[in-house]
């Protein structure tokens, strides 16, 4: 069989699969309505209205009802960054591979960087009131640092020791709050701070505290990862 025949058979099979998927999706989506049957979500909303009283129910699921899973996710992220740093530490030459210098870019990035950091902090702190939270805000802060790495070249660098310190301290803070919940109340990640009014900034018990720690940890980790990827040279 020649190469051309193989490619044409591939194309035919791919288009066949795609047409079947389109037909199925057409059947599903033309009947799509936004009124779902009440399932697990409404139960969770009812429990949420009684116990944690956050305006964003997803946040209370992520950090309160399934807080242990969040700890696992943070640990997975930490292990992946650990593996990357272990693999890339040995290469000697540590220059920024983006050596593109431009005054306009530098001034614009200087204007943009505080706004991005402020937006990330807003998303983290308002995680229990609006969509967003620790992971999202942390990644937004890391993308601000990525902008600085891209624009500033070698003028901007971050000490890895400080990043590691911040990351491990925030992880320790997460576990400390969880253990305090175990001491004061009866469960790991139990709520020991009084719940305020629904919809205010200082409400929801320990949920904003946990999300702040998660946000600091995620931003430090992703910044470290991007810094490793920007600075390596001659790997081939």
């Amino acid at each position: 069989m020649s190469i051309k025949q193989k490619i044409s058979i591939q194309t035919i099979s791919v288009s066949f699969v795609v047409s079947i998927m389109i037909i199925i999706l057409l059947g599903i989506l033309l009947n799509f309505t936004t009124q779902f049957q009440p399932t697990l979500g409404s139960d969770l909303l009812a429990i949420n209205a009684n116990s944690t009283e956050t305006a964003n129910a997803v946040t209370s699921v992520v950090t309160y009802f399934r807080g242990f899973d969040t700890l696992g996710e943070v640990t997975i992220l930490f292990l992946s960054i650990f593996g990357v740093s272990l693999g890339l530490e040995g290469f000697k030459e540590k220059l920024n591979i983006f050596s593109y210098q431009n005054t306009l870019l530098k001034i614009g990035v200087d204007t943009l960087f505080p706004i991005i950091i402020l937006f990330g902090i807003y998303v983290i702190v308002h995680g229990h009131l609006s969509p967003g939270g620790g992971f999202q805000g942390g990644v937004i802060i890391a993308s601000g640092f990525l902008l600085m790495f891209l624009a500033k070249g070698d003028d901007f660098s971050i000490n890895h020791k400080i990043l590691e310190l911040v990351e491990s301290l925030s992880g320790a803070g997460f576990i400390l709050i969880a253990l305090l919940g175990l001491l004061v109340t009866d469960r790991f990640l139990g709520n020991f701070i009084p719940i305020g009014e629904v919809g205010e900034l200082f409400s929801g018990g320990i949920i904003p505290l946990i999300y702040i720690f998660v946000g600091i940890k995620v931003s430090a980790e992703i910044t470290a990862l991007l810094e490793y990827f920007i600075r390596i040279k001659d790997v081939r």
Binding site: N102, L104, L105, G108, T111, L112
Partner: peptide, 10 residues
Amino acid sequence: LITNPLSSSI
């Protein structure tokens, strides 16, 4: 207004 002209210039 900040980002779009900046990226076009770059």
